[in-house]
Write a protein that binds this DNA or RNA. Structure first.
Length: 372
DNA sequence: AATCCGGGGTG
DNA sequence: CACCCAGGATT
């Protein structure tokens, strides 16, 4: 009885593997990180691909590899350079963690990349997914990855009813993936599963007729592929009003403040300001925030522009105003550092995207001579 | 187990 | 604008 079940499962598993791997060989995309699977390249690619689409990550990957071709060069670089290379990619803690982990490997592992799941998990920014990805792709460790693609594929294959976001689903999918993993070539199996999710078993409009797993897919059998994975009801995200000051001095220099490491967007440079309190307008907000943050009294002038920006967990309108200092010299009270810079050099500093928009506006105003 | 990261793309 | 997808860290 047991042997029969085992044999039956083996038949299914073999068919699963053969179809999946054949499909992958035909359809796999040629991506920069897929040639030369060194641990370092795999690592950088996997961190970039967290929460980020392939199309968006690709140019960043090429630039990053050019600028930091080796783990040693990354570890030796100033953090500022790493953030600058990451600018625009979002989730900046990834860049900070990457840099920290590189230094850790250089120092404690003498530059030899860790090659066990436990050692990988101990590095900042590496969780279960990334540890399995690096372990399988670079070191052929038998670790199954579970990312959004794998959750979608297996939620459909096994018609899992719990929402994709629940930790129960993650655990269930991890168990299935571990069981299905192609032991002889875990890296290719993992890539194939994720590629299937990206190209065929897509969130909307999955290409079931051409799917290598259609024969065993329970969601497809029910004619309900797109109904999986089940979605949890989502809550609405808040909207915030924020003000930023373009502080200009008598020498036509602009003040940038650096965010503290422990804050969100830590280490990035921005036009100082903050959230408007209830009942406050941008002017009152800037007078208060700039006193708290930099210890200066200011006169808030005209509005340059309003940047509407959507973040992952809220949206905001960022009101940028020209500002002059009435009294006091700036001190880095609620920020890590500050700097006065000529407008032309604003873009040397790594900034959040919303501040990049302000910076471009400021530079344009100076270029055409209409700056106040 | 749930929540929080200050994302970006698409229709 | 509404809607969608998404790993790690934290608590």
């Amino acid at each position: 009885m047991t042997t029969k079940l085992v044999r039956q499962q083996t038949v299914i598993t073999n068919a699963f593997h053969r179809n999946l791997i054949d499909w992958f060989r035909q359809h796999r995309r040629l991506l920069p990180w897929r040639n030369k699977r060194t641990p370092y390249r795999v690592w950088i690619a996997e961190i970039m691909l967290q929460q980020t689409r392939v199309d968006q990550a690709q140019p960043y990957f090429d630039r990053f590899m050019k600028r930091f071709p080796s783990l040693r060069s990354l570890a030796a670089a100033p953090r500022e350079d790493v953030l600058k290379c990451w600018e625009g990619l979002g989730y900046y803690s990834r860049a900070r963690n990457l840099h920290e982990a590189a230094r850790h490997i250089a120092r404690d592992h003498k530059g030899r990349f860790p090659r066990t799941r436990e050692e990988l998990l101990a590095l900042p920014g590496i969780g279960p997914y990334t540890a399995a990805a690096i372990g399988s792709l670079a070191f052929q460790l038998p670790l199954a990855v579970v990312d959004g693609n794998v959750i979608r594929v297996l939620s459909r294959v096994f018609a899992i009813e719990e929402p994709a976001s629940s930790s129960k689903t993650t655990r269930q999918v991890q168990e299935w993936a571990d069981r299905l993993l192609l032991q002889e070539d875990p890296g290719t199996f993992n890539e194939a599963m994720m590629e299937l999710g990206a190209l065929c078993c897509t969130p909307r409009g999955p290409d079931c007729p051409n799917c290598p797993l259609r024969a065993i897919c329970q969601a497809h059998k029910k004619g309900q592929a797109e109904a999986y994975p089940r979605k949890a009801p989502r809550k609405k995200i808040p909207h915030k009003l924020v003000a930023a000051g373009v502080i200009i001095n008598s020498r036509n220099q602009i003040l940038l403040a650096q965010r503290r490491d422990t804050d969100m967007l830590g280490g990035l440079w921005e036009f100082p300001g903050g959230k408007m309190e209830p009942g406050e307008d941008a002017v009152a907000c800037l007078e208060r925030e700039l006193k708290e943050e930099l210890g200066i009294r200011v006169r808030v002038g005209d509005e340059l522009l309003v940047v509407a920006h959507a973040f992952s967990h809220f949206t905001m309108d960022l009101h940028a105003h020209w500002v002059k200092i009435i009294s006091g010299r700036p001190r880095a009270i609620e920020c890590a550092d500050y700097v006065w810079t000529p407008p032309a050099q604003l873009r040397m500093y790594p900034m959040p995207r919303a501040d990049v928009k302000i910076a471009e506006h400021v530079m344009a105003r100076f270029a055409d001579g209409t700056a106040t």
